[in-house]
Computed example of a mutant assay.
Amino acid sequence: MKKIEQKIDEAFTDTFLLPREKAVTDFLVDVLSSKYKFREDDKKIEVISLYYYASSPLSALFALPNYEYYSTDKTVQIAELHLKEHSLEDYSPMDVQELCKKVLDENAIDYSAYLDEDGQLDYANYWENQFGLESDFLMSSWKNVKEKTQSKMLGFLESSDGESGMFDLDNNYVIPFDVDLDEYLQSHGFIIEKEGW
Rank of each mutant, 00 (worst) to 15 (best):
W127G: 05
E195D: 01
D110P: 06
E128M: 14
Q186W: 08
F131A: 14
D170F: 08
L133H: 13
A124V: 09
Q186C: 11
D161F: 04
K152L: 07
S112I: 06
N171C: 08
L185P: 04
N144F: 12
S159G: 02
W127F: 04
L185A: 04
E158V: 08
L154C: 01
L169F: 07
Y173S: 10
E147S: 07
L138E: 04
L185Q: 03
N129Q: 12
P176R: 09
D170I: 08
Y173T: 11
D180Y: 06
A124E: 14
Y126W: 06
Q130P: 11
H188N: 11
N144D: 13
V179Q: 12
S187V: 03
V174F: 15
V145G: 03
S151A: 01
D182M: 09
D122N: 08
D180I: 06
F131E: 14
S160D: 00
E193D: 05
I192P: 00
S164H: 15
L121T: 03
D110W: 06
D161L: 05
D116Y: 00
E193F: 02
S140Y: 14
D136K: 15
S160Q: 01
G119W: 02
K146Y: 06
N171M: 10
V179C: 09
N171A: 09
N171L: 11
M166D: 13
F156N: 00
D136V: 14
F156S: 00
S159Q: 00
V179G: 08
F131C: 15
L115A: 03
H188S: 07
D182G: 10
L169G: 07
D168Y: 11
Q186G: 08
D180T: 07
Y114V: 06
F167A: 15
L121F: 01
D178E: 09
F131R: 14
N125P: 12
I175A: 05
A124T: 15
E193S: 03
W142Y: 02
G162Y: 04
N172P: 11
L115G: 02
Y126H: 05
S140R: 13
M139R: 12
S140K: 15
A113D: 11
N144P: 12
F137N: 08
G189F: 01
M139L: 10
I175E: 05
N107K: 05
D116W: 01
N125R: 12
E163T: 13
G132S: 14
G155M: 00
E158P: 05
I192S: 00
S112T: 08
L185G: 03
Y123E: 02
L181G: 01
F167R: 15
Q186M: 09
D161V: 03
I175D: 06
G189S: 04
